[in-house]
């Protein structure tokens, strides 16, 4: 707000609406004011999902179980891809659970503007609330799927006890932040870019599929020849999945360098995403 020299007629305005926001005018205070809405969105997404179903949230378990079985048959039994001595079921489940959290955040967030144009066109609230609520409601799904992973983990501990949880598992909270941040960051960029030109949407559909194969989800990083491992590590998801497996299953590749790289990547991506998102939210109703 401009402070005029003569303070007799300085008017205090609570809201000033102008054509463009400055690049870094990020109103986190406003998002905080709308925290109740954020939680209600999370609740809505979660509750609406299983209304009128018998199994309810148990449906969240069906997809990872079936995918894991499928991968076990195809990649382990038929293609005979090594899992570094970890029971294949456990190995794939670890990968899929984490990858799915990232992928579902990415996919839902990148549809923010298009799927909410009804609400966005009628009422103002900080738009960032919507993608944040998506990340959180997916986190609930992720937590349920982690319970499944924990169940399998205990079972395999009894049967074979090959997997060894170690101190690196304490990095888990950081990994969750990385997964959420990467999904959110990519999603924000994509949803902002697709309000006017929808081309990216087509890429997104199979892009996420392909990206999974470029990430050590169904194979360990150690399977890649050493001199090319740095290429795989350029993918910020690589170190996240590998660290998870290293910490909980005791097998894999761990490198502080890779992890630090992923973290910096995530922070930069998030900032870029939020800035682009903020610029887009002002006018997207005209072009979406």
């Amino acid at each position: 707000m401009n402070k005029l020299p003569d303070n007799t007629t300085v008017e205090q305005w609570d809201t000033i609406i102008t054509p463009r926001k400055s690049l870094f005018e990020l109103n986190f205070k406003e998002v905080w004011q709308y925290r109740d809405l954020l939680l209600l969105f999370v609740r809505r997404d979660f509750v609406a999902m299983y209304k009128q179903t018998v199994l309810g949230p148990l449906w969240y378990l069906v997809q990872p179980i079936l995918t894991t079985l499928m991968f076990t048959v195809v990649f382990s039994r038929i293609a005979k891809i090594s899992t570094d001595g970890i029971p294949p079921m456990l190995f794939y489940l670890a990968g899929i659970t984490n990858w799915n959290y990232f992928a579902s955040c990415l996919k839902s967030v990148s549809g923010t503007f298009r799927s909410n144009q009804g609400i966005f066109g009628k009422v103002y609230f900080p738009r960032l609330v919507t993608p944040l609520s998506i990340v959180i409601s997916n986190m609930i799904k992720y937590a349920i799927q982690l319970l499944l992973f924990a169940g399998f983990y205990i079972y395999f501990e009894f049967v074979s006890s090959t997997a060894q949880v170690n101190a690196y598992a304490l990095l888990f909270p950081l990994l969750v932040v990385l997964l959420a941040g990467l999904g959110l960051g990519f999603g924000l960029v994509i949803t902002s870019m697709t309000t006017k030109y929808r081309d990216l949407i087509f890429l997104l559909q199979f892009g996420v599929q392909l990206a999974m194969y470029a990430t050590p989800v169904i194979y360990p990083l150690s399977q890649i020849p050493e001199q090319y491992q740095w290429v795989a590590a350029l993918n910020p998801m690589t170190s996240v999945i590998e660290t998870f497996k290293y910490g909980f299953l005791g097998q894999g590749t761990f490198s502080w360098g890779h992890l630090a790289y992923s973290f910096c990547f995530m922070v930069a991506l998030m900032l870029a995403g939020i800035v682009i998102f903020n610029r887009t939210e002002k006018n997207f109703m005209d072009t979406v």
Binding site: E11, W13, D14, T15, I17, P19, Y124, N283, M285
Partner: peptide, 18 residues
Amino acid sequence: KLLSKVTAPTTGSIKAKG
């Protein structure tokens, strides 16, 4: 729509209290 911040103006400004 401009007053309720659904979309931004091309030029000019709106100031409000409360």
